[in-house]
Amino acid sequence: MTVNSSLHSDSNQLIISIDERFDFSLHQQFRDCYSQVQQKGLEYILDLSKTKYMDSSALGMILLLKDHVEMYASTLTIQNPSDTVSKILEIAQFHRLMTIK
């Protein structure tokens, strides 16, 4: 599995972690991680600590996730991006849209 997700009901967190490559091939899996979650006030955490490569479709997927998060009044945080990934996020100016740490 290249996409892992785990819902922690006690701390209201949904953690989605991605493997090395984050590209178009993951879009179905990625969408399945959150499309059925309709809980409000949840904290979505996208863990990119293992990710080394990311293309524009990954950015599109994150934006779709962001739309979903906003629809259910939740927050989105990107965690531990590598240098390269961090640069790509910076170019796409994602730091204005969500928390990156």
């Binding site: 879009h27 179905q28 969408r31 524009s56 479709s57 950015l59 599109g60 997927m61 934006l63 779709l64 170019i91 796409a92 100016q93």
Partner: peptide, 23 residues
Amino acid sequence: LDDFVNVIVNTSKQSLETMNYTD
């Protein structure tokens, strides 16, 4: 360049939505 990146990202987003509809 920033605008270009924006266009790319938005295109990706729209394409993914199209993909969802197709599915």
